[in-house]
Amino acid sequence: MAEAEVLVQLSAVYKRYGETVALDGVDLTVRQGESVAVMGPSGSGKSTLLNLVAGLDRPTSGTVTVHGEELSALGEGALARYRRRRIGMVFQFFHLLDDLPVLDNVMLSARLVGTPHKQARARALGLLEELGIAARKDAYPSQLSGGERQRAGVARALMNRPALLLADEPTGALDSRTGEQVMDLLLDLNQIGQTLLIVTHDQRLAERCASRVINFEDGKVSELESV
């Protein structure tokens, strides 16, 4: 069977914050359809890795290529467009916009890429239905439980059918039962072909959802293991 296409390629990536080295010559490849979990202690560089892949930050040296685009070569506007079309992000603290109800939060990404309102609404409602929170579509984030907020966050991330779903501690702020639900959700997504890059402390999440686990320590890949 032929190997899947490379979706994410990090080559000799260094990232420094002043004197602190966050990433120290990282090489990493993620192929389409994979689910990769990045684990490691606090300060090991996991989140920095995720921010670089998301185009939210730039490497000090080295290259980050996603879906054939070298992110360092892109300007701020192009990076914003890259985030809209290529990736979806799920955050530990959900980061929904407090001023918008759930449906509008989810539709926002589609509105950014110019999807007609009717079409965006239908897609958002479909996602909310699939994720089991359609009944809360008119609620504001502050009126939702943690699990509901994270589902809304996942729905928003999937809205533009991203090639890559990035998840930063997606179960970190959830109780164990809700965390389980989110894990199931991510697993389901991967099984239907969604590429996942998950940063987590949660061993169970990594074991359940990831086909490959990458351990980080002091800004370096310390260990690769297949699940």
Binding site: E76, A80, R83, M89, F91, H95, L96, L97, D99, V113
Partner: peptide
């Protein structure tokens, strides 16, 4: 301030 981060993360350009 936090909303600025969220907006950028989901694809808002600096101009937007």
């Amino acid at each position: 301030y936090r909303s600025i981060g969220v907006l950028k993360a989901i694809g808002f350009t600096p101009g937007q």
